[in-house]
């Protein structure tokens, strides 16, 4: 294993504990595109001097898609096992780059005995930028570029986090443009509620295409997302519209990682 990323077991073996646990999530661990987000976020944490651990192979699905698809048994099995592991390491603060993991860990684990301070990376990045731990290069590549932010349902409506990702993007000095429907009325990418794992029901259009059309209508060259599922859906949408060369779908962590000042 890359020595720069330590597991909680490594930390425990040294008799130490990191400031935070980075909950990578299944998409962040296995999906090629989402892995790049994971690495970008790790780069930022390291630049900011935050000590963190991951669970590595001890991490398992939070159970979110099982719960939303109705399989409460499977969800609770996953939750109980994860809580035992997390409590075993006496975890206090969890960071995650996935709003679904975030929502489940933050809102649904407490009832089952898992009490942690859980932060989505949008909130955490905003904190790092606000308190000067993350500094951006003067000539960052996104200065003045048109960026639109796609609200993910589990960050926005589910948890009321609308401003943190926008503040992170505003640190880039970019030209932030809003889609017609944003914040509380933001249109879903189509992947939530376990839709990610099945074909959509019969209809006249796929939801991600409808949302991509709204994003393209802003004529932004970057569609910023804060969720691995939104990433997949919006990237597929942009490809479907054959705009993948002109419009890039990127996670807010990737944008910040690219714009980091040299002197970190």
């Amino acid at each position: 294993m890359n020595p720069s990323v330590r597991t909680m077991a490594d930390w425990a073996a040294r008799g130490e504990s990191p400031e935070v646990l980075f909950w990578v999530g299944c998409a962040g661990s296995f999906d090629d595109r989402a892995r790049r987000v994971t690495k970008a976020f790790v780069k930022i944490l390291q630049a900011a001097g935050v000590t963190f651990g991951v669970l590595g192979t001890e991490e398992t699905c939070t159970g979110d898609p099982a719960r939303r698809a109705g399989n409460e048994f499977l969800f609770q099995m996953q939750a109980m096992n994860n809580i035992q592991v997390l409590n075993g390491y006496k975890v206090k603060t969890i960071l995650t780059t996935c709003p679904h993991c975030f929502n489940t860990l933050k809102n649904e684990y407490p009832e089952l005995g898992g009490h942690y301070e859980v932060m989505h990376h949008a909130e955490y990045l905003q904190q790092l930028i606000d308190n000067g731990k993350v500094r951006l290069a003067d000539g960052n590549p996104y200065k003045g570029r048109k960026i639109t932010f796609h609200d993910s349902c589990y960050l926005g409506r589910a948890n009321g986090i609308y401003e943190a990702p926008r503040k992170v993007l505003s640190a880039l000095d970019a030209d932030l443009v809003e889609m017609k429907r944003c914040r509380t009325t933001g249109l879903c990418c189509g992947a939530g509620g376990a839709q990610m794992f099945k074909e959509p029901e019969k209809g006249s259009k796929d939801i991600n295409i409808a949302r991509t059309e709204e994003a393209l209508a802003t004529s932004a060259s970057t569609v910023a997302v804060a969720c691995p599922f939104c990433m997949t859906m919006m990237s597929d949408g942009v490809k479907n519209k054959e705009k993948e060369h002109a419009v890039h779908v990127q996670d807010i962590a990737e944008l910040i990682a690219e714009a980091l000042a040299e002197n970190h």
Partner: peptide
Amino acid sequence: NACTSCNA
């Protein structure tokens, strides 16, 4: 089965 649980 069509619901995305988006809370809209």
